[in-house]
């Protein structure tokens, strides 16, 4: 993978003020535009077929249904932009959810139950980040190992018990300030915050440099080790927030990890335009991609696609989106 990045000429996105707004939008946010177009197209097509698809309640389901995946994909996007990957995030969310739920039912104040997954997420990913950045072990190896450790450890410790009887105050994902479900608010605020940070702050922007060309980054005085470590720790904190959204949605917490959660999160990040080669992409794209997945899932039920073919359709759509993106990028080279 790293070999390819030497050949790649993908540039980081710098503001180019000399060109018209639309053209700038297209070059800076091309993939995001494609996904928005796909979402709108889906809304129109399925909405015409069955207007209930566009009912407020269904739109709420679509936007909030994958909110925790979108949030987790923000951190994942940052990790991938710096040229790394994390396959342990699904297991991490499973472990953190169990810890958070256990604290909540044991009578700790809810802020402890909410704070613990964030802090523990940071702690676990500090270890991962250190092993990747300073011990120089490839991230896929560290996170493969970590996934196995977390998955096994979860069952060893909990014995597989489900957590039920969660206190009402703990259920933050069921809050509806101003009539908007909290997961949607959290997803939008975090995405915009992260996008703004990565575009306008030196540290945020340096992530692109680290992922795009670590050698050059080093030459210009950017310590890629410390940035990679920092990104993993941030990713851990965001995974903690995703955990809270995940664990407080329903009144039961399973002590198993949702199957293939890590793949869904990674797919959202890369379909959202984050280059797996590192160095380009935005978190807005990954959030849009997570919404697109939720919309496709909902649409397939609305248009009565035989459930047997559901996964084939989703896989086909992913492949087409990826190919379209590669074709779109080609003339720029």
């Amino acid at each position: 993978m790293a070999v390819l990045s030497q050949a790649s000429t993908l540039s980081t996105r710098k503001p180019q003020n000399s060109r018209p707004f639309i053209a700038r939008l297209m070059t800076d946010y091309g993939q995001e535009c494609v996904i928005i177009a796909a979402i709108l197209l889906l809304f129109v097509a399925v909405g015409l077929y069955n207007p209930r698809f566009l009912s407020t309640s269904n739109l709420t389901t679509i936007f909030s249904g994958n909110a925790y995946i979108a949030v987790a994909a923000i951190g994942m996007s940052m990790v991938i932009i710096t040229g790394h990957i994390d396959v342990s995030v699904g297991a991490l969310i499973g472990v953190l959810a169990t810890i958070s739920g256990t604290l909540a039912v044991s009578g700790y104040p809810v802020w402890v139950a909410w704070g613990a997954p964030i802090l523990l997420g940071m702690a676990v990913n500090f270890i991962v980040g250190w092993l990747v950045a300073f011990a120089r072990i490839p991230s896929i190896v560290v996170t493969l190992g970590m996934m196995s450790i977390l998955r096994g450890g979860l069952i060893s410790i909990t014995g597989g018990t489900w957590i039920s009887g969660l206190p009402k105050a703990f259920m933050i994902a069921q809050w509806k300030p101003f009539g908007l479900p909290f997961p949607i608010i959290a997803m939008v605020v975090l995405t915009l915050l992260a996008a703004w940070w990565m575009r306008n702050f030196p540290f945020g922007r340096s992530l692109y440099a680290v992922g795009g060309n670590p050698e050059a980054a080093k030459a210009t005085g950017i310590s890629s080790e410390r940035r990679v470590l920092a990104v993993f720790v941030i990713h851990g904190a965001i995974a903690g927030i995703a955990t809270i959204l995940f664990a407080t949605q329903l009144q039961v917490i399973q002590s198993t990890v949702p199957p293939n959660l890590e793949l869904t999160v990674i797919t959202a990040a890369v379909i959202g335009g984050v280059s797996i080669l590192g160095g380009s992409g935005t978190v807005i794209g990954s959030t849009l991609a997570a919404i697109l997945f939720a919309a496709i899932g909902s649409a397939l039920i609305f248009v009565n696609v035989s459930a047997y073919w559901l996964r084939a359709v989703i896989g086909g759509l992913i492949l087409i989106t990826v190919l379209a993106d590669m074709i779109r990028r080609r003339p720029k080279k």
Partner: peptide, 18 residues
């Protein structure tokens, strides 16, 4: 909906909406 409680929740919601 696999053995996934959030997905089960989303699928049930979609059925209600549909």
């Amino acid at each position: 909906a696999q053995e996934d409680n959030i997905l089960s929740f989303n699928q049930a919601n979609t059925l209600i909406n549909k």
